Amino acid sequence: MTQSNPGLAAVLFDMDGTLVDSERLWDVALRELAIEYGGSLSDAARIAMVGSDAATSMRILHADIGQEWRELDASRDWITRRMSELFRTGLVWRPGALGLLQAVRAAPLPTALVTSTARPLVEVALKTLGRDNFDVVVAGDEVRAPKPDPEPYRTAARLLGVPIERCVAIEDSRAGVTSALAAGAAVLGVPSEVPLDPCEGLHLLESLAGVDLTLLGTLLAPAEVTR
């Protein structure tokens, strides 16, 4: 049977560094925590955290300051409290992000927010992002295997009821790009804090300014012919 190309089925958005300029807020909180522990967070460790879930980031931080013995939960709770304060007052949209999100919703096309950030902080961020802008939210603490594993993006497509191959994922980090590509989505990369190296299947732009549905549709591979 030959299946015609049904076009773009959904757009899957990463949050930190993609929709909102929040990586700088994470930078503040993570460096403050290192100082609280009597250490100093290296730039290399900070870069390694971008796109990671909270547990992974805390392991990196503990190792970087030579305090692997610290409890992950205690550090995670500290970061959550501090980031909640910063999210309430400091979230700023990335260039072009709000306009693209509004265009996708007006199409109308299904949307998902797929983030490594845990649900409590996502709930704070949604006050800026707009809860109604997303049909599905997949938070970092709601999957067994967070990014760079493909589970978050596969979960989003399943919850939306759409084939992942007909989805475009928008990401700013290597962990997120790896997750989305492994899941089978078309991927648009818009790096923020850390450059993204070109790789097969990744479409790179400097920002979301000027990105529209027509451009997103061109990122999809032609539909496969099945018999």
Rank of each mutant, 00 (worst) to 15 (best):
T128F: 06
I79Q: 04
E85W: 08
V114K: 11
T80H: 01
E71Q: 13
S116W: 02
L129D: 05
V28F: 12
D53Q: 13
R76M: 10
R94P: 04
A29W: 00
L121N: 03
D77E: 13
R70D: 15
R88F: 00
R76S: 14
A125Q: 00
D21Q: 04
E36V: 11
A9C: 07
M15P: 03
A74D: 15
L109K: 12
L33Y: 01
L12Q: 07
L91F: 08
D53T: 04
P120N: 02
A125N: 00
L86E: 05
S84A: 13
R82F: 12
R70P: 07
F13R: 06
G17Q: 02
M49K: 09
T18Q: 06
R88Q: 07
E71K: 14
G90E: 06
D27T: 14
I60D: 15
Q67D: 15
G38T: 14
L121A: 04
D14N: 05
T80N: 10
S42W: 08
G90T: 05
S42P: 11
P110G: 10
D21T: 03
P110D: 14
W69G: 15
H62E: 13
R105E: 02
R119F: 03
V122W: 00
V28R: 09
E68K: 12
N5Y: 02
W93V: 07
M58C: 10
Q102W: 13
N5H: 04
L8W: 03
H62M: 15
G99V: 01
A63C: 10
S52R: 13
L86I: 02
I35R: 12
L113S: 06
A106C: 13
L33F: 08
L98R: 07
D64V: 15
L12Y: 05
L12I: 10
G96N: 04
L61F: 13
E71H: 10
L8F: 08
V122L: 00
D43I: 09
A10Y: 02
G17C: 02
T18C: 07
D64G: 14
G99L: 04
S57K: 11
G130I: 01
A63K: 06
L25D: 01
V20G: 07
A112Y: 09
A118R: 03
G130W: 02
W69I: 09
A54Y: 03
S22W: 05
H62G: 11
L30K: 05
L126P: 00
L113K: 10
R131K: 11
V104Q: 04
I47F: 12
D27A: 09
W93A: 02
A55E: 12
L30Y: 06
